[in-house]
Write a protein that binds this DNA or RNA. Structure first.
Length: 312
DNA sequence: CATCGATGTTGAG
DNA sequence: TCAACCTCGATGG
């Protein structure tokens, strides 16, 4: 569920509150006991996100590679900076003590509210792990719990390079013209539908099903158009739009894909979750631009949403 | 209570 | 192309 912006926000949390500290690593669930033992007691030296991949670097060139997959999530507690909960209605100025980044997990938010009522002092630190926590990373003041990841492994620099080599450009990493050129070349060399190419992490990394649908609508691009048939200029605009939406999402913690909203409407879109997108999950509803019913279809095993008139 | 589905990827066939 | 992975909120009985 998490798309690229979530992973960049997670990396920020680790950079702010874990990097430079000795980490106590454990696997409350037990499925990562060996990996946790290998990391325990080491200092975290860097947190890096590329696309949907997270690399946490430790002493002596050991890396924890994590991919959240469809339902993975990190829960942070203790000393944590989280200006806004993802997928929640917590006020902007709130100083939450519990934050979940990844798949939308309302459980964590409810727990935070309950703890607020009881008083945070009673909750204690660190909190007991709840549910199936694959990895717990603990400092004196902060804790991060990982649950449900697709990938979670301790690797060395060579394997990190191998993983990075598989990834297409990420606007947060490959800034400027380089990333854009790689994206254009990757798309233009393929006789595959652009709707599939945007989901292919070797073409461009970090885009998921929500951003795919919204980016294609914003570009008024037919998802079935083969990459090699799309004019270069249009692809460059598509890349720049992706870079813009990604930066905004990293900042706000939400996938805000509708521009031109009034401040009030925008706050509502941030808070409400519904009415946030142009086409994503709006099948059967009238297109916000032309009124045509939004279509849903399966493309390479994933749900695709689009407007057959505006994206003709 | 059971079942389904999800912002994802891998590997078998 | 499709099941498996693995978690949990939403939905239906």
């Amino acid at each position: 569920m998490p798309e690229g912006h979530s992973i960049h926000r997670i990396a920020q949390q680790f950079n702010r509150h874990f990097v430079g500290d000795v980490i106590r690593a454990s696997s409350p669930q037990g499925r990562f006991a060996a990996g946790a033992r290998e990391l325990d007691g080491r200092t975290m030296t860097e947190a890096k996100a590329v696309g949907k991949q997270l690399f946490l670097r430790f002493d002596e060139d050991r890396y924890l590679r994590v991919h959240l997959g469809l339902y993975g999530a990190w829960d942070f507690a203790g000393e944590v900076s989280a200006p806004r909960f993802e997928g929640s209605t917590v006020a902007d100025d709130a100083e939450p003590s519990l934050s979940s980044i990844g798949a939308p997990r309302l459980t964590r938010l409810r727990m935070a509210e309950q703890e607020d009522e009881r008083g945070l002092e009673l909750a204690g630190f660190p909190p007991e792990p709840v549910g199936a926590v694959r990895v717990r990373l603990l400092t004196e003041t902060s804790v991060a719990d990982l649950r449900g990841p697709t990938a979670c492994e301790v690797i060395g620099p060579d394997e990190v390079e191998r993983q990075l080599a598989k990834l297409g450009p990420d606007p947060m990493v490959d800034r400027g013209r380089r990333g854009e050129d790689r994206f254009v070349a990757n798309v233009r060399s393929r006789n595959v539908a652009i709707g599939q190419l945007l989901m292919d992490q070797s073409v461009v990394s970090g885009i998921g099903n929500v951003f795919r649908a919204e980016l294609l609508f914003r570009a008024r691009l037919n998802p079935h158009k083969p990459g090699r048939e799309i004019p270069e200029d249009q692809l460059r605009e598509l890349w720049r739009d992706w870079a813009k939406l990604l930066k905004r999402a990293v900042k706000v913690g939400q996938m805000l894909t509708m521009d031109g909203l009034s401040t009030a409407r925008r706050e509502k879109a941030i808070a409400s979750q519904a009415d946030r997108h142009w086409v994503y999950k709006r099948q059967g509803l009238p297109c916000r631009v032309c009124g045509t019913h939004i279509l849903i279809e399966e493309m390479a095993g994933r749900n695709l949403y689009w407007c057959p008139k505006d994206q003709a």
